[in-house]
């Protein structure tokens, strides 16, 4: 014990030195080897066989330029016709989040209430209810009417007369109207195959469960509409338009591919299911 009191610092430093040295060498060597191989030798050799110069190959390996250092990069810059012009930018989502339902009510009474009702309950069979509909869903359709991505003479005229903020306010107003919340079990039977379609989908046909997008809070695409309590005439009409390809403003054909695979009895069953207020 006594000698360790006298020479502890010198002694321990001597003991330490090789450890410090060799562990630093090991770590530095590993890193250097990894960098030289990964960022230099591999990309340059790969680039040579793919006909790329060394600079491009290294930049690709580092992720500064797109593409693989071992392969040529395809290009395609053709302009195509989009099915919708709506882009859910951060700014637009902020506008929707800050929309003013009170302003929206004034606008809605002027432009929408005649058909869709002041409370969002429509009268005519081919006009959808809007009460409790998701705000982004209403905004998306109005915007598509405005740009012509969804065809409807009357709606196109109305939507073109409104600016973006007005669309967002109207969407917020109807989204805030209460749904009627009936007791669905008393209104319609829910056949097992329809419940299966809603809850489990049909993996054989690649049909996902309806509820995986259309049930509120499911985490599906942001523009997905709420279907509960929607009128069955409108539901069937729109599914058929999707199935035939006459309506095509669903981004990435999300609904067209599903609608085209549903049988008429499934469509009718789903329409009755949602009409009754199931979610």
């Amino acid at each position: 014990m006594s000698d360790s009191h006298e020479t502890p610092s010198i002694d321990r430093r001597l003991l330490d030195q090789p450890w410090r040295f060799w562990s630093t060498v090991a770590v530095a060597g590993t890193l250097l080897g990894g960098i030289i191989l990964g960022a230099l030798i591999i990309p340059v050799v790969q680039g040579r066989s793919a006909g790329l110069d060394a600079y491009t190959a290294i930049c690709r390996a580092l992720g500064i330029l797109p593409g693989s250092p071992a392969q040529p990069q395809p290009s395609d810059r053709v302009q195509r016709t989009p099915v919708s012009q709506v882009v859910w930018t951060s700014e637009l989502l902020h506008i929707l989040a800050r929309a003013d339902p009170a302003r929206g009510r004034t606008k809605a009474l002027e432009s929408c209430a005649a058909c869709h009702g002041e409370t969002g309950i429509a009268v005519a069979p081919d006009v959808p209810h809007l009460a409790g509909q998701s705000g982004p869903a209403i905004y998306k359709q109005l915007s598509d009417y405005r740009t012509g991505s969804r065809a409807h003479d009357l709606m196109a005229g109305i939507a073109r007369a409104l600016d973006e903020t007005a669309l967002a306010d109207i969407a917020a107003y109807y989204a805030g109207r209460p749904m009627r919340n009936p007791n669905p079990a008393t209104l319609a039977p829910a056949p097992a195959e329809i419940i299966t379609l809603v809850e489990l989908g049909d993996p054989r046909r690649g049909i996902p469960p309806c509820a995986s997008c259309h049930r509120a809070g499911s985490g599906g695409p942001i523009e997905t509409p709420v279907l509960a309590e929607q009128r069955d005439e409108y539901f069937i009409q729109q599914i058929n338009l999707y199935a035939s390809g006459q309506r095509r403003n669903d981004l990435y054909a999300r609904m067209r591919t599903i609608a085209a695979q549903l049988t008429p009895s499934e469509i009718a069953g789903l329409a009755a299911y949602y009409r009754a207020g199931f979610r």
């Binding site: 690709r60 693989s68 392969q71 195509r80 012009q85 882009v87 990435y252 054909a253």
Partner: peptide, 24 residues
């Protein structure tokens, strides 16, 4: 030339339908 599927090609996911290349 075995590489992981690295590409590092940025493309706005919100506007793919307007991108031309990934339009329907």
């Amino acid at each position: 030339g075995v590489n992981p599927p690295s590409n590092v090609e940025r493309l706005d996911p919100k506007a793919l339908h307007l991108s031309g290349e990934f339009a329907e």
